Simulated assay, not measured.
Amino acid sequence: MKLEDLGYSERLEERRQAYDREHGLMQDRSATEPGRIIAEHKERYIVATGGGEVEAEITGHMRFAATGRADFPAVGDWVLVTVYDTDFAIIHSILPRSSILQRQAVGQFGEIQIIATNVDFAFLVQAVDRDFNVNRLERYLSICHASKVNPIIVLTKTDLIDAERLAELRSAIEGRIHDVPILTVSNVTHEGCDELRKHIEYGKTYCMLGSSGVGKSSLINTLTGGAIQKTGDISESTHKGRHVTTHRELIVLSTGGMLIDNPGMREVGLADATGGVEATFDRIAELSVHCRFADCTHTVEAGCAVIEAVEQGQIDRASYENYLKLERERSHFQSTVAEKRKKDKAFGKMLKNYHKQNPKQRDL
């Protein structure tokens, strides 16, 4: 497989050559070569290179210099590696990312979790039987818009409902979300799958976002033409999907596109969604410039153009309430990050003063 089949470009090659020149590797046999992270297993990575797939790990310098999760490789990343013995490699550097899909790390305030990188399109997958939720779609959209990733809504398991109900669901989405493609598919009858394939372009990277049990693994099997992913059932007791995909993996499709599968996400907290919420709720953003106060929160202020539009039925009330929820969540995350940085800075200052006052302790 050629690197171009994985999405390698001239821009990335220029970055690689610049790295080798900077580190004096151009005339050295240890010069790096590019590869793409296609799987991750507890800080051990599978990297696809021009010579095949190799297992890899990062250098000690990368680990020491990392200030957060974003400084470690993720599935979708282009990296520079030195390959040893054809089956093992060392990762030296991560090439600049064109996009980063991320969410708030579950149970870790102020921390982010990278979903995937260098993604062009995201399939927002929901099942029409139990999982359907427009609020969640707006949440996914905010993450996509913040990452400059193009969203495509995919409704699965359409064989479980009739045409009238499916039309109602489409109408519910179109009433609140505009200018985003909506595809409907059945992995049983394969209806709609050909239309989905038309949206997959050569050299582009796609990512699936959705809860467990919505049919992501079945959809991948349909697109690849083989049962390469395990599939699971809905729990009868909780009515929630069981996690079948346990790690992120990049799969090359026969159509030429690449698809990153992710474990199902029951919690999708917003991290740094700057610009994403505004893009998702663009009508609210447009009206906010007409509010009486520049710092209007659109909650209780007199002269708020957004509240007036909601009361007049120009903005869907459920969408407005979801907007307020996501805004509170985003603000809380940002304040948590600021507080965490403040504490880290104070701790670093305290440690520096301690070593200054106790120089012998520093050398122990």
Rank of each mutant, 00 (worst) to 15 (best):
L6H: 01
L6Q: 05
L6R: 04
L6I: 04
G7T: 01
G7M: 08
G7Q: 00
Y8W: 15
Y8T: 05
Y8S: 06
Y8F: 09
Y8V: 11
Y8M: 14
S9K: 05
S9Y: 04
S9M: 08
E10M: 03
E10Q: 10
R11H: 06
L12E: 00
L12P: 00
L12G: 00
L12H: 07
L12S: 05
L12V: 04
L12Q: 05
L12T: 03
E13Q: 12
E13G: 07
E13C: 09
E13S: 12
E13Y: 05
E13N: 14
E13D: 00
R15M: 02
R16Y: 00
Q17A: 13
Q17Y: 07
A18M: 04
A18V: 13
A18I: 07
Y19K: 02
Y19S: 03
D20Y: 11
D20S: 07
D20C: 14
D20H: 09
R21W: 10
R21I: 09
E22A: 15
E22H: 15
E22S: 03
H23Y: 10
H23I: 00
G24K: 07
L25K: 04
L25Q: 07
L25F: 12
M26Y: 02
M26R: 06
M26F: 01
Q27N: 13
Q27C: 06
Q27W: 10
D28Y: 12
R29V: 05
R29T: 02
R29Y: 11
R29W: 11
S30T: 07
S30C: 07
S30R: 14
A31F: 14
A31M: 13
A31C: 13
A31T: 12
A31W: 14
T32P: 02
T32I: 07
T32W: 07
E33C: 01
E33Y: 04
E33L: 13
E33S: 06
E33K: 15
P34M: 03
G35H: 04
R36V: 01
R36T: 03
R36I: 06
I37D: 00
I37S: 01
I37P: 01
I37M: 07
I38G: 06
A39R: 15
A39T: 10
A39P: 02
A39S: 15
A39W: 04
E40I: 10
E40K: 10
E40C: 07
H41M: 15
H41D: 12
H41S: 13
K42L: 06
K42M: 09
K42W: 15
K42H: 07
K42E: 11
E43C: 07
E43G: 03
E43W: 06
R44S: 08
R44Q: 08
Y45W: 00
I46M: 03
I46N: 08
I46K: 01
V47E: 08
V47L: 13
A48K: 11
A48D: 08
A48M: 13
A48S: 02
A48F: 00
T49I: 06
T49L: 09
T49S: 11
T49K: 05
G50I: 06
G50V: 08
G52Y: 04
G52K: 10
E53H: 00
E53R: 14
E53F: 02
E53M: 11
